[in-house]
Write a protein that binds this DNA or RNA. Structure first.
Lengths: 158, 158
DNA sequence: CTTAATTGATATAAATATAGTATCAGTTAG
DNA sequence: CTAACTGATACTATATTTATATCAATTAAG
């Protein structure tokens, strides 16, 4: 049971970088390099987030992406919904069918209850919250964005 | 985000039928027909449950499957683990790497916490519990196993 | 003692979802 | 003008999920 797909994982971590460098545009390339994510794939993820109004972009040299909202307004739940669809049990033709099959119906009720729990949990986890945890941990660990890496220009992609 | 795959869904509902007809062997065919599941696929699901000691079988005419445990001893969590793997975040090479990437590490911590919540919730849902809910609901709805359906012999599968 | 209803075991295919790559066009700072 | 960027989109590859098919072995029952 995979909770987060790569897209969601990449999205969250990219947003954390944007959150850490708030106020300036951050290029996909720098995120991809620093967080070790596939460049083109990440681009797609970011474009999807633009469509959902989470971030904004600027084209051209010195361009990149920037948060369009406060970090606390971006919840992991929303990201999961964008990249993995609404949290739901199998194919849910439930609402319409009024539970033709009783065992499925009873089962569904339990699952929906649990889904609500999961949903609530994820809703509470925001980019802002994660950022604060990151900062709290930074006393003990090397910086998240500690300048250019020595090999940041050595790219063999595309 | 799909919580239950078909296998888990079928497994749970098949177990509910076995639980409802406890004491006698129930054939895959009758389960497949009554619950509208693909026959061969369901067979695979049941065989998997045999391997995990949840049910027992008897070959030949009048053969079929039977619960090997008390319904209360069979939790949905275990079924999810059997058919969908242990509840875990993406690829978790965590334990070994000691979090090379800090944002991933912080994120992971949150996810693990939520996973624990989910896990606990699913652990509490047992076949026994679902059976009791089924019975409670049966006052309002037609029986789960109300004899042979009129068309139960009209099969065009295989 | 044959037959039909069953499970055991296993191979394969089809469908879908996830992950990743490539390309070309447009924008912009320097 | 050019190199560093994003926008848009088409494509490929891989993995997972779902489903089907087949053949052998077992067994109740006529």
């Amino acid at each position: 049971m995979k909770v987060l797909t790569k897209k969601t994982d990449y999205a969250i971590r990219a947003l954390l970088m944007l959150g850490a460098k708030r106020g300036s545009y951050v290029s996909v390339r720098s995120i991809a390099v620093e967080q070790d994510m596939p460049y083109q794939f990440l681009r797609g993820v970011l474009q999807e987030m633009i469509r959902h109004g989470l971030i904004v972009s600027k084209e051209g040299v010195q361009g990149g992406f920037m948060l369009a909202k406060e970090p606390d307004e971006i919840g992991v739940k929303q990201l999961i919904e964008i990249f993995q669809g609404t949290v739901q049990v199998s194919e849910c033709m439930f609402r319409k069918q009024l539970c033709a099959n009783r065992s499925r119906c009873v089962l569904r009720h339990e699952i929906m209850r649990i889904e609500q729990v999961v949903s609530d949990e994820f809703e509470q986890v925001t980019i802002g919250k994660l950022l604060r945890k990151l900062n709290a941990a930074s006393n003990l660990m090397p910086a998240l964005t500690d300048g250019e890496k020595p090999d940041s220009t050595i790219l063999k992609e595309e």
